[in-house]
Nucleic acid binder design. Structure first.
Lengths: 353, 353
DNA sequence: ACCAGCGATGTAATCGTTTGCAACAGTTCT
DNA sequence: AGAACTGTTGCAAACGATTACATCGCTGGT
């Protein structure tokens, strides 16, 4: 199984050539200072405020730093400065790929400003409450980006002294937290108007959980475009709920059926479309389908899905920037709204005559 | 107010509200100690080694802790203990949903043992080298889980004094790092034997990048089941490469075409299948398709994809456990291999007569 | 000349915890 | 009764950086 000659290291070697370090430990500020013939304060300044030093000393310190291979000790700096250098992203279910792109955007924006990205999963063993207690701690993170709208204002209030919190994607009604969100209503409105333009008049939809803020906002958007949005198919954003909606659609007499259906997520739309196709209904000839989110794979279905795309990376990076501004004490927008985009593919076509 | 037998501290605390904390800052060990009438050392021990204290003091400290709302300062502890309490997962492209599930498994296992999960993206702006320099730092993390096989042994050697590293999913040829991987060869072998059992004799495949370790291992597995695995369709694990493979398949005379194709990823298999379906080829009647990875959505395609499932959460949590053992100085397996699983769905059927 | 002002650097306190060592009060053993 | 423990607790020194304040030469204005 193992390649012959595979070395079995228990302890990994550390290269210890001529690189100057005291003992086995890493070089400290004091080591650099000794080598450069200056005080630790000077070395510290060379790192944080180089403009304060004369060119000569700055160079000498620089040389000593490379000679020793010095790397700053974060714990020491953070202790002294009373910060942590980390931002926690609290997501409900890290395993949900929807968040992957958002995290990527956040990570890039945060790292660029010297922050680390720490991830916490509110659905992890122990539950939401435990996750909140663990991560809403000023000594663990300088700020929190909360992507879980199921957290209540009460949960948050129970953790006094928590670092600043910014909501992203979802939000909490009544909690005065800055947020970075998609214009959800505009998204469903866009979808509905697109279908209207294609001649559809009976337009159905697959909702999310009834108490979900995204669900409510998206229903509102529908109402802006449609005289009577009706009650839609119950759903929960999952593929399975799309399959169930398809079954209900099939059970309805053809004359009463929607000729187009908007899923409140790409997954429910894809589940809906897939089940219908398996039952011999053709999309978009017999029914048009529009999704919501703009996740990658729905573009590659046998019938590529028309959808409302969320700028996921932007949502992440914007949330990160808002939080960093908040931490820096700058004034921040209470609510940053990003625009959705209609991506026309093949699953939505003209209404059947 | 106080329980009857409560030992009264020598120094009486300044009376203020019930939430005892010095000024605006959070309560420190010293505040708790003052309130409980003991020394800071005792409070520290109450937290880390409660067995060392008498029941009375332990209770008194406990009361003082809840009264002050004390929460430990991580920077201070980490500085003193010479650790960070964090583990970095270095992934190539955080936006790739394949890693989401793995991260979820890692996060759960790490949090359970008191570690935080820090994520780093080797594809982030600045490139791999910058990401490595940033995260392979003993003062930032106690250990690294590297999921990027494109890193070279030289890159790693250039960072002396780095914390312990464990590879997951991918690995680096010639680097003596412990690893946690899928038995990739067993995966493709499983797929090939399944197709053989269904009567297929001309079995094609869509590979990954030629120098990729996963690709090589999977080709090897094919060779264990098939007399002549041939050269396969070139690919890179993406949906698009599956589409290209479909075009090549369509260009081949029917008598020479594979009657079954194994994708080295679910995405390439789905791209292949989707393109054929759009061109009017029916799966599995005219051609069988098997994927690799077991990502969620391919189960919900119009023709659900038969695939080789990787235990993604397990890979993540196992890698985390191996790393924690390594950090604890326990001996670890140089190579932990997890078994893949054949998931039979509808895209693979009997060979056409 | 003298003093204010300035630029460059050093001194030392500080951040909040952990932990080796010492101290001390009871036992128990001889 | 003294020695040798044992179980609890306190004292104080780390850990490695940052930064307010002090110091020291100089320069230039008067």
């Amino acid at each position: 199984m193992l390649a012959p000659g595979f070395p079995h290291p228990i302890v990994q070697v550390m290269g210890n050539t001529e690189s100057e370090r005291t003992r086995q430990g890493a070089a400290r500020l004091a080591d650099v200072a000794r080598l450069a013939g200056v005080s630790v304060a000077t070395v510290s300044r060379a790192l944080s405020r180089p403009d304060l030093l004369s060119t000569d000393t700055r160079d000498a310190v620089q040389r000593a730093i490379t000679a020793t291979g010095y790397r700053m000790n974060h714990a020491a700096r953070n202790l002294r400065k009373g910060r942590t250098g980390a931002i926690v992203a609290l997501v409900p279910n890290l395993g949900n790929p929807f968040f992957a792109k958002i995290l990527a955007g956040m990570g890039a924006a945060l790292n660029a400003q010297g922050y680390d990205l720490l991830v916490g999963d509110t659905m992890a063993p122990g539950g939401r409450h435990r996750a909140l207690r663990r991560f809403l701690d000023p000594s663990r993170a300088d700020g929190i980006i909360l992507l879980d709208g199921q957290v209540t204002a009460g949960d948050l209030a129970a953790l006094p002294g928590a670092p600043p919190v910014v909501m992203a994607c979802e939000w909490i009604e009544g909690a005065p937290l800055p947020r970075v969100v998609l214009d959800n209503a505009a998204g469903t409105e866009l979808a509905a108007r697109h279908l209207l333009a294609l001649g559809h008049r009976r337009i159905g939809w697959i909702g999310g959980p009834g108490d979900n803020v995204l669900h409510k906002a998206r229903v509102k958007g529908l109402a802006r475009a449609l005289p009577d949005p009706g009650s839609g198919y119950a759903g929960d954003f999952t593929l399975e709920s799309g399959v169930r909606a398809a079954e209900r659609w099939l059970d309805t007499p053809a004359a009463d059926r929607p000729t187009a259906v908007i899923g409140f997520s790409d997954e429910s739309a894809a589940g809906f479309m897939g089940e219908l196709q398996r039952r011999g209904v053709s999309v978009p000839e017999q029914v048009s389908v529009v999704g919501f989110d703009g996740i990658d794979w729905v573009a590659h279905l046998p019938v590529p899905l028309t959808t409302i795309r969320q700028p996921k990376r932007d949502l992440g990076s914007t949330a990160a920037r808002v939080l960093m501004a908040l931490i820096a004490g700058q004034p921040v927008e209470p609510c940053t709204v990003l625009a959705p985009q209609l991506v026309m593919r093949n699953s939505a076509g003209p209404a059947p005559s």
